[in-house]
Amino acid sequence: MRKIETNRLLLRNFHKADSDYLLEYLANPRVNCFLEERICTLEDAINTIEKRKKDDSFIAVCLKEDNSLIGELFYLKEDPDTYSVGWNFNAKYEGHGYANESVKAFFTYLFTDLGARRLYAYVEDTNYRSQKLCERLGMRQEGYFIEFISFTEHEDGTPKYENTFQYALLSKEWLKT
């Protein structure tokens, strides 16, 4: 992917130097959907970076001032022109508007460079920050799925199912803003 600059951020492919930063936020995922992405060692982080370096669907979000990784954006294309999108950020950087700034640039990239017609995101009903972000970005809530998916288990070993919202946005809506 091409590098994208915003006022304070750089969106780019992952680099080997990102390993320590990636470990910092994937060692203890705060949202259940990222539990399967959990990594525990620097070696795990290096291996994850090696995979992501070659995959344009994972985008590193870095501070422009020092190129340090603070989070990631990702997408999955569904033919012909729909994209499932998501994001994951280091908790240390919450409340500074970095997610909003980077996702705006990400959406513009998907709609204008990749020709997306429709974007959608799944957000757990307990993930209030991502719900608010979707709303600030102009996404509409299109669905609410009860016990939609399980990423973890209860103490007795049975699956713990997540209630999940679906938000979506069309290219024609985004380009009007």
Rank of each mutant, 00 (worst) to 15 (best):
L137F: 09
N163E: 14
I149Y: 11
Y167M: 10
Y161W: 12
P159F: 03
E155I: 12
G143E: 01
A168Y: 09
S150E: 12
L169A: 05
I146M: 01
C134A: 13
T158P: 06
H154M: 08
Y144I: 15
Y128K: 07
F148R: 05
L137A: 11
T152Q: 05
H154K: 08
D125Y: 06
G157K: 05
Y128P: 00
Y128V: 14
E124N: 00
S150A: 10
E142D: 13
I146H: 03
R129G: 09
I146N: 09
R129V: 15
Y161T: 13
Y161I: 04
Y144E: 08
Y122M: 01
E142I: 10
Y122T: 03
F145G: 06
R129D: 09
S150Q: 11
E162K: 12
E142W: 05
C134P: 11
Q166R: 06
N163F: 14
A121L: 06
Q166M: 07
R136N: 13
E124T: 01
Y167L: 07
C134D: 05
Y161D: 14
P159V: 03
L133A: 10
P159D: 05
S130V: 01
G138C: 10
Y128T: 12
Q166W: 07
E142C: 02
R140F: 07
F145K: 00
A121W: 06
F145T: 05
